[in-house]
Design a protein around this nucleic acid. Structure first.
Lengths: 243, 243
DNA sequence: ACGATAGCGAGGTCTAGCCCACTTCGACTG
DNA sequence: CAGTCGAAGTGGGCTAGACCTCGCTATCGT
């Protein structure tokens, strides 16, 4: 049987089955049936437990839905129920806009108590403070302050500033995998209003983010978004145990 | 063998094992080992596949971590990486505050185009509009407007208003399981400022939520939070395929 | 003293069945 | 014609083994 997926690994037949079924359902209609477990057993010549293990993964990912007595079906691709840790550029591109960035400030500072706690370092330790104006389709959207520990990113300011912060993370194998946002409303200060081309007192959205790679706090960003040009969208799930 | 969990259900031995292990690890130190799979096989007199199935659930929930060659261990309870669909009361209780609610308005209205689209009904169809002031420890926190379709909740206004909206959902088997929030900054209007005991022009956080049960839009809420008393916290994960 | 290695126990994968509960649907029956 | 009943097929759960790789460690040989 040839399924186009080479069995590069010994064992792991369940991955073969899983990827085969995944290839079937990527462009299948929601609600259409997947092959039955016993069919797959016959097709691949494996035990049913193996097929079940393979499908378990797709069910866990929400691609398939099992209905006892009826079969296994392709789910309606609900929504990515996970808020994504994405950069400003990624987010604007997803919205079909052209991102742009102008550096307003990039210098060495020392950590105050708040930053020290957020970056898990000591008060007075050296910090990079990089402030950029972020635009989409040429219109100012946000002011973004990035804070990095110079202990984590030695000589960061000695070289040219990276085109994207995420290159710097990738280079050092510190790409963040998770984080937390704190969101609060505020009104624009005079400086902010000037950069964002607003009147002082106009509402702005403050988003403070701590990003982590494994257990280490990699960056702290504080972004000030024009409320009239940016709405935060957050998908939410009700936890299983409260349903 | 007595583990305190009655085997109310025939079959489902894996649930017995799962809940036993869960009871062991709820107050175990992160990093401490769980019983080995073969130990559990002996303790419960079940097959190893059954034990593995039991542990699979705990691993999927992020409570346990398998390390090949070493064992299975209690994970550091990182963070609930999922923004929770919780009510105002639930959220305030989680923050250790006493929630309170004062109804400002409860009446029948008809859907305008925006509401009709959000509630997936037609323009002009009957709507419940329920406005409440939400307090925590006696302090005003937010104004919450709830909109329900009277088609989904017939006679909602004929009875006494429910103590919690979630009772109304539970009664009708329409408990929302997922939703989406849109978050934006604004400044308080005069009316809002008065209710929230703010000066007009003070920043407020607008959170618009659509909640769904299965595929039906159950409720739309529009909440106006005092920015000085409420910060939204959002956990974020970087999607697997971008790591 | 130190390094190589063998053994043990851990999880990872897999087999070839078994019975159960449930849904569906067609055939049979009153 | 309507209702019932059962066969076929589905996923759910389970067994009692098997062999694999990996991490650790104790022991043995140099």
């Amino acid at each position: 049987m040839e399924h186009g997926i080479p069995a590069t690994q010994r064992g792991r037949k369940h991955l073969l089955v899983r990827e085969y079924v995944r290839s079937l359902i990527v462009d299948a209609e929601p609600g259409s049936p997947a092959p039955s477990e016993r069919d797959l057993v016959e097709q691949f010549g494996v035990a049913r437990m193996t097929v079940r293990h393979a499908l378990d993964g797709l069910v866990a990912q929400g691609l398939l839905e099992r209905i006892p007595g009826r079969g296994t079906f392709v789910t309606k691709p609900l929504i990515d129920m996970q808020m994504r840790l994405s950069s400003f550029s990624e987010e604007m591109e997803r919205r079909g806009k052209v991102p742009e960035s102008r550096t307003l400030l990039a210098r060495r500072e020392t950590a105050g108590p708040g930053l020290a706690r957020a970056l898990e370092t000591e008060v007075g330790s050296p910090i990079v403070h990089w402030e950029r104006l972020r635009l989409a389709d040429g219109q100012p959207i946000a002011i973004q302050h990035v804070y990095l520990s110079l202990e984590t990113f030695p000589r960061f300011l000695d070289d040219a500033l990276p085109a994207s912060l995420y290159y710097a993370f990738a280079d050092r194998d510190l790409m963040p995998t998770w984080g937390e946002d704190s969101v609060v409303a505020a009104v624009a200060t005079e400086d902010e209003a000037e950069s964002l081309e607003l009147e002082p007192g106009a509402p702005v959205l403050h988003i403070s983010r701590r990003s982590f790679c494994r257990e280490v706090a990699v960056e702290v960003t504080r972004s000030i978004y024009r409320a009239d040009r940016y709405t935060l969208w957050v998908p939410v799930l009700r936890p299983e145990h409260l349903r």
